[in-house]
Amino acid sequence: MLKICTTFVFLKKKDFFTYFVKDEYEAILKNLISIRKEKGITQYQVGKRLGLSDNAYSKLENGHIKLDAQWFLFILKIFDINLKDFKGFKKN
Rank of each mutant, 00 (worst) to 15 (best):
L2I: 15
I4P: 04
T7W: 07
T7A: 08
T7F: 04
V9I: 15
L11K: 09
L11Y: 03
K12S: 06
K12H: 04
K13L: 10
K14E: 06
K14S: 08
D15P: 02
F20D: 01
V21T: 07
K22N: 09
D23G: 06
D23N: 08
E24L: 01
E24D: 01
Y25E: 03
Y25W: 05
Y25D: 00
A27M: 02
L29H: 06
L29T: 04
N31E: 13
N31L: 10
L32D: 05
L32E: 08
I33Q: 06
I33R: 03
R36A: 02
E38G: 12
E38H: 13
E38T: 15
E38N: 14
G40C: 12
I41T: 03
Q43V: 02
Q43D: 04
Y44D: 05
Q45I: 02
V46E: 02
V46W: 05
G47K: 04
G47S: 11
R49H: 08
R49K: 12
R49Q: 11
G51H: 10
G51P: 04
L52F: 15
L52T: 06
S53H: 11
A56W: 10
Y57V: 01
Y57G: 02
S58P: 11
S58K: 14
K59S: 14
K59A: 13
K59I: 07
L60C: 11
E61L: 00
E61W: 03
N62W: 05
G63N: 05
I65T: 11
I65L: 09
I65A: 08
I65H: 05
K66A: 09
L67A: 07
W71G: 14
F72R: 04
F72Q: 07
F72P: 03
F74C: 13
I75P: 02
K77C: 14
I78G: 01
F79E: 06
F79V: 07
F79C: 01
D80R: 04
N82E: 11
L83G: 07
L83H: 10
D85Y: 07
D85G: 05
F86L: 07
K87H: 14
G88R: 00
F89K: 06
F89M: 02
K90G: 03
K91G: 08
N92C: 05
N92A: 05
